[in-house]
Design a protein around this nucleic acid. Structure first.
Length: 663
DNA sequence: GAGCACTGC
């Protein structure tokens, strides 16, 4: 039954009716509304269907409702819709619940890490693609789903790509099951107890798979699924004028600056969105804009610059969504966060220098780095589209038209350019390609980098799981320490209070425990949750700790703690015996050991690479003879980060299979 | 004495 009943005052009733009417009209006006019947028919006829829907077609909110009304949730089955991003799963689910006139978490819900709003009644479930992959570990046939809709498939995230491969396999298994009239456990020879329990006696219907993509190139998806049918749905987008430069621009930052003022002085009203590659560029361009704006004649309108990038505190991010006061033009300086993750309204002009910062991974050296490269055609298209959301717009590409033709069609899928150890482990646990031992299965259950999962198992044997759990939680999140340029000395002094001369791992444990103590104190004072939150926030400010990262670490900690307890690992602590803990770190991370060289540099033992300790490490000055490290990054030099001092003899003792004794 | 595109479990 609808939970938003029309009871209450006549005024409220009126308001409610108006809102329902508004929603009905909005839904009816979406381009996808006119093809509802056709889409449902195609979904009935085809096991795999590809829907190419342009921006603004309404496919993400409407298609699951069409399928629900078309009877795809009979027998209590669920329609699952995957999204690459958490915030999309949340906001779309909220919207669709409202359209269904129901409370979120009943018929319509979402499920993302640390936040699950679904219930037994949920039939339309929005989730992140990574979360569905996790679900497949527990139920390899995804037996509770009648349909899986993979949205935004064109983005080709690792999770989406792996999911598509997996879903193809699930479709086969389920098709065979129903064909032979067998129950599921018969088909899945390798299935585990959990699977058998969830599918016992049921005959699974075939799994319907719908792939939704915004790019016009549906062929690769179609080919992969044996020539699956593709349906095109029109979008709703205003025309965007694309302008190119006549000459190549050697300095795109300067060209952006010039273009901003050209628009400001010569074009009509409307906000500007400029795409830059990172924080540093954004900060320096902001300064340059204000410097030059001072030279404008007093009668010309003002400029308001709002930066937005992911590590910017959220209160400051919100500025980019506010509208500028009358007589002022807003200039948003953004990274590619504004390409897909967030939509800023009021943008009429887009400036695209055509560059992007991307992660590069060298599998031979295991080294990751960030490089600035040209965007792809699809990316440039996505950027220009940001100017036509509310009316006709203009996009200024700061390169020549002939250069556009030379761009690659689409960005190289992530799966081809990152460290795959995590993915490979999960695939193996899912029974794809090869078997792994029971330890591997345990490791795959943990939502962590495999090396960290291994560390937890090792530390449970060495009786210091409590400390290791804290370390992997802290290492799994963005930087814990926060040091603004203007308060560098204060930040350094604050960190001194947590520092351990043994290294960064124990320093992180100290921070975590101090924060937990702060929370415990306010809990003992019977503070409400909000007050506790405030106390922790203040503590973080005083100690120059990144509050967002710390909270994330707490979330990870409690999730992993639940997992390791389920696995039956013993949550013991080594107390004050930090030698034991360092030995444990050595046993876990022996592959990442480095020896000091006479010149003060280090040699990574596994690869022989020459590396330097990173200045952020507490051991930066000490330079012990031998360390283990967690991260190897290449910037101006090869740096190792997150270090702990160890005794080199421990290596041969704790990892004899790897470090044959030299003497 | 450095430097952090964007996601996700």
């Amino acid at each position: 039954m609808p939970s938003f009943s029309a009871r209450g005052s006549p005024h409220k009733q009126q308001q409610y009716q108006r809102r329902r009417q508004e929603i009905r009209q909005q839904r009816k006006s979406l381009p996808i509304a006119s093809v509802e019947k056709r889409l449902v028919d195609e979904a009935r006829k085809n096991d795999t269907l590809i829907i190419v829907g342009e921006t603004g077609s309404g496919k993400t909110t409407q298609l699951p409702q069409f399928l629900y009304d078309g009877g795809f949730c009979q027998d209590g089955k669920v329609i699952g819709i995957t999204q690459p991003r958490r915030v999309a799963a949340q906001t779309v689910a909220k919207r669709v619940a409202e359209e269904c006139n129901d409370q979120l978490g009943r018929k319509v819900g979402y499920s993302i890490r640390f936040d699950d709003s679904t219930s037994n009644a949920t039939r339309i479930k929005y989730m992140t693609d990574g979360l569905l992959l996790r679900e497949a570990l527990l139920d390899p046939l995804l037996s509770k789903y009648s349909v899986i809709v993979v949205d935004e498939a064109h983005e080709r995230t690792v999770h989406t790509d792996v999911l598509l491969g997996l879903l193809k396999k699930v479709q086969h298994s389920r098709a065979n099951a129903s064909k032979n009239g067998k129950t599921l456990p018969d088909v899945l020879g390798h299935s585990q107890n959990l699977t058998q329990k969830s599918c016992q006696g049921s005959r699974c219907a075939p799994l319907k798979l719908i792939i939704m993509s915004a790019s016009l190139d549906a062929k690769c998806f179609s080919d992969y699924f044996g020539g699956a049918k593709a349906v095109h749905v029109q979008g709703r987008q205003y025309p965007v004028d694309i302008l190119y430069t006549y000459q190549p621009e050697p300095d795109y930052l300067d060209a952006t600056l010039v273009t901003i003022f050209q628009i400001h002085l010569e074009e009509g009203p409307g906000d500007i969105l400029a795409f830059l590659t990172g924080q540093e560029e954004i900060e320096s361009l902001e300064r340059l804009i204000y410097e030059r704006a001072r030279l404008l004649p007093p009668e010309s309108s003002k400029i308001w610059v709002t930066p937005i990038y992911s590590s910017l505190p959220s209160e400051q991010q919100m500025n980019a969504f506010k509208s500028a006061p009358a007589g002022t033009r807003k200039v948003v300086l953004a990274t590619n966060i504004a390409e897909t993750s967030v939509t800023i309204t009021g943008i009429k002009y887009v400036i695209d220098p055509g560059m992007v910062k991307a992660r590069a991974y060298n599998p031979v050296t295991g080294m990751e780095s960030l490089i600035i490269i040209p965007v792809s055609k699809a990316q440039a298209l996505q950027r220009s589209g940001r100017a036509g959301r509310e009316g006709p717009g203009k996009c200024f590409r700061l390169f020549q038209e002939s250069e556009f033709d030379k761009l690659v069609d689409s960005t190289v899928p992530e799966i081809k350019r990152c460290n795959l150890s995590n993915v490979v482990l999960q695939l193996k646990a899912l029974g794809i390609d090869d078997i792994i031992d029971p330890v591997g299965h345990q490791m795959a259950r943990l939502p962590l980098d495999p090396m960290y999962s291994k560390a937890l198992i090792v530390s449970s044997e060495l009786k210091c799981l409590e400390e290791m759990l804290i370390v992997v939680s802290m290492l799994s999140v963005e930087s814990i320490f926060f040091s603004p340029r203007e308060k560098l000395e204060e930040a350094r002094a604050a960190r001194k209070g947590f520092e351990s001369s043994e290294g960064d791992h124990i320093t992180l444990v100290n921070v975590y425990r101090a924060a937990a103590e702060c929370l415990e104190k306010s809990k003992n004072a019977n503070a409400k949750e909000k007050t506790m939150e405030k106390a922790l926030n203040r503590w973080c400010r005083e100690n120059f700790i990144n509050h967002r990262s710390l909270k994330h670490a707490f979330d990870v900690h409690s999730q992993i703690q639940g997992h390791v307890q389920q696995m039956g690992l013993n949550l013991s602590s080594c107390g004050d015996d930090m030698v034991l803990f360092r030995r444990c770190l050595t046993a876990a991370f022996f592959l990442n050991a480095a020896m000091r060289q006479p010149d003060g540099s280090y040699r990574a033992l596994a690869t022989g690479q020459s590396v330097q300790t990173h200045p952020s490490s507490v051991l930066f000055r000490t330079k012990p003879d031998c360390v283990i490290f967690n991260e190897l990054v290449r910037t101006t030099q090869n740096y190792i980060k997150n270090l702990t001092r160890i005794d080199p003899l421990w290596l041969a003792e704790l990892a004899p299979q790897y470090y044959a004794t030299e003497d």
